[in-house]
Amino acid sequence: MNLFRLAGDMSHLLSVCVLLLKIRATKSCRGISLKTQELYALVFVTRYLDLFYSYISLYNSIMKVTFIATAVSIIRYMRFDKVVKQTYDKEQDTFRYAFLVAPCLVLALVLNHRFTFTEVLWTFSIYLEAVAILPQLVLMQRTQNIDNLTANYVALLGAYRGLYIVNWIYRYFTEPHYRQWLVWISGVVQTALYADFFYFYTKAWKHNTRLQLPA
């Protein structure tokens, strides 16, 4: 494993920590899209099915279990915690699951490396992860005051994707058989979705103002 990949994973892990910190410490999930969180849970569950039949490393297994467990925990807070669930912007979080899930499923059935149950689900998770952030970005555009923890959460997720791209470039040159077009294209699409966010994020940071995305 190279340094970029490790930094990407750590950034991903940190983003989850920041989100859990926000929810637990402030007892609020304001500005967080439950749709995005549930899509991520679906991404992890469909991708990490291989926990049952293939072992890569202890690191991989622990990370996989951690991502599934934290995703479930976040959803539990947002849906069932008496205090937290009242802070959920349900009326604003209107993105339709079907708009994202259906095209990804169709694409995974058509475009995959191998037509097997687990491989199609794995490919589906790659496509779905690319667009799962959309409900969160839409919600943030609608939210007037985006708090720092929410902004940092999304920034860390974006950093994770960016670092993975650097990791792919590195692996492309260091590992002769490393060719992953399907993963790369989805990853670039996913990272591009953050471009707009990062523009306003750095601008707010430079001027020391609160982040606000134009509608």
Partner: peptide, 10 residues
């Protein structure tokens, strides 16, 4: 082999 490579990331 190719499959294994694709699946070793998170």
């Amino acid at each position: 082999q190719r499959r294994q490579l694709a699946h070793d990331e998170l």
